[in-house]
Amino acid sequence: MIKYLGIALLYAGVLFDLIGCIGLVRLPDVYNRLQAATKCVTLGTCMILAGTILMTTSLILAIQGIICLVFILITSPTAAHALARGAYKAGVKLWDKSIVDHYGEDQS
């Protein structure tokens, strides 16, 4: 039973990773692409890890999986935040159909 749950999590994780990658190609600018990259890829990778934890019989492998899961949940949004801020400071413009930019208004 647990094995099938693990397999289901693996498939769902791969699906979310795939959607994240499609988003990376389809969305218009850096900030929108980061949205797809962080959200879908974080959840997808966490699901793959969770599936592995459920399916493995080795205790140490499960512990390693949990450590990786926590690290991904902390570092992935932090990296996205650093990239978005860095891109804005480096002068990367928002998509021309963006409707509001309070950040730019406050800096000028």
Partner: peptide
Amino acid sequence: NLDVAFRVLHPDLPIKPGIVK
């Protein structure tokens, strides 16, 4: 994730992005 997946896979790309404070 389902929300972003919906927007990404929708043919018209229904997004209205912006930065708010």
